[in-house]
Nucleic acid binder design. Structure first.
Lengths: 202, 202, 202, 202
DNA sequence: GATGAATGAGGATTCATTCAT
DNA sequence: TATGAATGAATCCTCATTCAT
């Protein structure tokens, strides 16, 4: 049991190593330009080894996203659940994403830029990823709907409002990712949240 | 001269045919999945002929975007120039994009989803496209700055405000492109513009 | 028209070149050990060119066999049709195969040894090849049946008799292909035919 | 000694298990399509273990054949030795093979179809297998030669006569293996033997 | 001995680009 | 100028074999 447990740990660890390497390389080169061997090299393993853990390049990609997407979703849920008001919920939605970005830049680079684009095209990739990609907005929309019903905020279309928050957040992150133009300050986030709140308040 | 002029016209026309075909195919399949022969076929020419007009697949892609990006930029400039107030400027910014989208869905599908993603990656693609992609926001930012200076709107960070408008617009278009979920109504646009104005007003 | 005709000829010729090369290489190495590049090299073309003419390695293999299998079938039909008696039919059946073998050793090496083996395994390859592989025997069986009905030969099971002839023929060819042991003389054929006739006569 | 003997027995037993598994899998999938792991799994051992008993996939293949080829050869020798006349020898040659086939279909599927094809190709595989594959015929040829010398049968070329018997036998077995067309009856064998005898009698 | 995780050479296939006609 | 046949580098994936445990 000791051995099998250790093995299992090692195996899980290796899987994580691969996913970490995959995020690094996919973030640097994008899906199409990434060669499976690059990922293996980055992970310090042989090409064939990768195929012991994942059945295809595409599955590596999706798994690399899925793991972080789940975590982000969980953190979002936690943060929103604790938020006493719709304003707090909104602010936390943005903050969770921006702080997750600090720690997982590679993930968000793929998730926010390339994966969104891939979703636009026809081929279905991963049902769960699709769902997670929309769950954050849906959660926020629920909070907005409840607040609007209680007359705490403007009786706006809650879905559309949540979409707006999501898009602005994406913009903030992309701006950080780009690194172009004016450097992005922490104040920018506060300002964006403030504007969004104003837009939605009574 | 007549002949050479005619030839030139013909040649330009063919170039346009190719770019139109390219937009169609790239929008349908995305950059990676598009095969050069698909474009040639869609354009009704031979594969080799395409290479008389463009040096590479990538250049076709960029040219296909550049043309429309310039038009969109010109229309934006015109619309914003005529706008009497910052609110009008904001509304027109959004409307120009959404109406351009109606007529050039293929272009915007590539521009808003895939190209943005490609920009994120390291390799520089087209300086002009980069610039155009930001010019709209910059223009809007200038109007905002002027209006704020005149005390007509909140003394917000104009660049950040323009970014917000840009991101929300992108969200509206993506939602139309997706075709998922609730169908998008014209009212959504009005609502979004209204929210953005509220966010920025004094 | 001249050009397109010429082109067509050239294209057909190239197809034949590839098939010829394929037969050579497949006969030398067998299907599994043959690498597509080997065939291309033998044909004096690039690897990619081969894929302009055939969609896969397997299809090259089948096409290489099919062409000759059809010719062999046609020759068999012609020879058997002219045969006045069942004895002549039997002799010609054997002779056609042995003389075809002289001119198309590569084909028969694949057809008689490897392809038969592949047929045994489950995966369906080419319905026409299967049919052709059995048509010769079937034709002979018909002749035998007719002759038996007329009392010209032993009232044997005609199918089994034809199978026997087919198997002995295959043995003669394999012996030539092997090149082991005693060299095979023309007299061997005559002797085999003689024995088969004796086995079947009244 | 007891232990080492037991070990040896165990080891031999395991070797047999592997060979049995190999025959099963090779017969089902053919050499090329068989993956070493399939054999190990069928044998209920680890992949690495297989390599403790055999140095390569090819050697497993050959060993799987060799064992049964030896047995078949031994049975043939026994049966032929007891046969009082050339007719009995012939009949027993056929019968031994057909009854061996009943009990060892997997072996004969490989031996009669695939292995024969592999022999045709250049690379030498196993000298003993080659020899065994011909020994049966050689034995029969000796009996024929003796009988012919005694004037008991037609003064035919004994080798060629034996080849004929061998080929017809192979045909009977292949027909059973195929399972196509008319089902094969026991009478077919009797008929084939009868025909062969007629072909060879005085 | 037994195992199965790790490896990387090898192979089928694709496709951007060239170039002879 | 227009063409599309030809090319081969590049890529994903498989699997026989090895070796640390």
């Amino acid at each position: 049991m000791g051995i099998s447990l250790r093995r299992k740990e090692t195996s899980e660890r290796r899987r994580d190593t691969i996913l970490h390497a995959a995020r690094t390389v996919f973030a640097r080169k994008g899906y199409a330009a990434t060669v499976v061997e690059d990922i293996a090299e980055e992970a310090g393993i042989g090409k064939g080894t990768l195929y012991l853990y994942f059945p295809s390049k595409e599955q590596v990609y999706l798994a690399a996203l899925l793991e972080d997407a789940r975590t982000l979703d969980a953190e979002s849920r936690g943060a929103l659940a604790e938020a006493p008001s719709w304003r707090d919920a909104l602010r936390r939605y943005v903050e969770v994403r921006l702080s997750y970005f600090e720690a997982h830049e590679d993930f968000l680079r793929i998730y926010m830029t390339e994966f969104r684009g891939m979703c636009m095209q026809g081929r279905p990739l991963s049902a769960e990823l699709y769902r997670l990609a929309q769950d954050g907005e849906a959660l926020l929309a629920q909070r907005f709907a409840a607040a609007a019903a209680r007359g705490e905020m403007r009786a706006a279309d809650p879905e559309l409002a949540a979409l707006m928050v999501s898009d602005v957040t994406r913009g903030l992150i992309e701006r950080r990712l780009r690194g172009w133009g004016r450097p992005v300050s922490a104040g920018d986030t506060a300002f964006a949240v403030d504007m969004l709140c104003r837009a939605l308040e009574r």
